[in-house]
């Protein structure tokens, strides 16, 4: 855990949620919301009862002390996990197939391509499975009626049909790939519509500098709060503010760029 000051974490989380909403209106985030809230609540509730470190005792539970520090620790942990999850959701939206391939094909060209294909074939398989389901349901092999055994059996049969069908089709896929030179000798080049422009380099430099400040501050203990053995003060020192400010810009960078575009087109 790097920054563990609750104010830092809450700010980061809020900003990231806004960033996420700016991607797709929070559609993906909403799907994760139940998991996220249940997980956070569990961590906050369970941690103080399992860990009895800390000096400020709230009450005793079955002879064990329940402390403010452990509560605080649970909260920071929950915030931390929430942040990671939200970042991951953003990552998923932003780094879709193409960009993923672009980044990873530099080190792992073949594996990256395979992953790409696997991702592309998931919806295709889904469509095929639906089609099989329709046909089989109408011939009386239902997955919703009958004993568990027959249901499982008809489910397995569907998968079997799907596999036979897909293998059959895979021959054509590989033919088409071979016909266009896949697997031929020589180096594979990469056509990419992504370029680092001057302004990209500039902003990369700015972001990197901010990052360095944050790291340096963190290393010196700024942006952090002492939890164990005794809850430290909430108060910000001068350099805390500097680190906080850097962190603020760093996390809200996507919002700033997106917002600027929005304003420009108003």
């Amino acid at each position: 855990m790097y920054f563990n000051h609750p104010i830092f974490l809450v700010t980061i989380l809020l900003l990231l949620i806004f960033v996420n909403i700016s991607h797709d209106g929070g559609k993906d985030l909403r799907k994760w919301l139940p998991t996220l809230s249940i997980m956070s609540t569990l961590i906050i509730l369970i941690n103080p009862f399992l860990v009895s470190r800390g000096t400020t005792i709230l009450f005793y539970f079955r002879g064990k002390q329940v402390t403010v520090e452990a509560f605080m620790y649970g909260i920071t942990m929950a915030l931390f996990i929430a942040i990671i999850l939200v970042i991951f959701i953003s990552f998923n939206i932003i780094l879709n197939g193409n960009r993923f391939l672009y980044i990873f094909s530099k080190f792992l060209p073949r594996i990256a391509l395979m992953i790409m294909m696997a991702i592309r074939f998931v919806p295709l398989m889904k469509r095929r499975l639906d089609e099989i389901g329709d046909v089989q349901r109408l011939r009386g092999m239902s997955m919703t009626v009958g004993s568990l055994k027959t249901r499982v059996r008809s489910g397995m049969l569907r998968i079997q049909i799907l596999l036979t069908w897909s293998l059959e089709e895979a021959v054509h896929v590989s033919n088409s790939m071979k016909a266009r030179g896949y697997g031929s000798e020589g180096k594979k080049s990469s056509y990419t519509p992504y370029y680092m422009e001057k302004r990209d380099w500039f902003w990369l430099f700015v972001l990197a500098s901010l990052m360095v400040v944050c790291f340096y501050g963190g290393k010196l203990g700024y942006g952090q709060m002492i939890i164990y053995p005794e809850l430290g003060p909430w108060q910000f020192f001068q350099f805390d503010w500097v680190v906080f400010f850097c962190m603020l810009i760093l996390t809200s960078f996507p919002l700033i760029t997106e917002g600027r575009e929005k304003l420009r087109w108003k």
Binding site: L101, M116, R120, E169, R180, S184, S189
Partner: peptide, 21 residues
């Protein structure tokens, strides 16, 4: 359906050229 490998039209178009370097 079976001849399209990539997710994006652009990537699909250049697939052959990329393979041949």
């Amino acid at each position: 359906e079976n001849q399209i490998i990539m997710d994006d039209v652009m990537q699909e178009l250049v697939f052959g050229m990329e393979n041949l370097g």
